[in-house]
Amino acid sequence: MEYQAALGLALPLGLGAAALGCGIGIGMAVNGAMHAMGRQPEVLGKIQTAMIIGAAFIEALTIYALVIAFVLAGKIQ
């Protein structure tokens, strides 16, 4: 297999796998935050800040995969 073909297969699949995991992670985080917000609307702001920071950390993992995909996508041509 040529390495271009391997890259062309691996990059979308790898990005998809990373997005799958991060999607589950963010879903669980937001689920917890929503429950907490519904239960205690008076600390809504604090929960929201913490949720956004946590979501950023989780989302960063997909972004790493995306950056790798962008770097390696230049080699397919």
């Binding site: 950023a56 989302e59 960063a60 972004i63 790493y64 995306l66 950056v67 962008f70």
Partner: peptide
């Protein structure tokens, strides 16, 4: 590194 890569990846994407 993670701080800059997060912003870079999001905006580039």
């Amino acid at each position: 590194i993670s701080l800059s890569l997060r912003l870079f990846g999001n905006i580039l994407g």
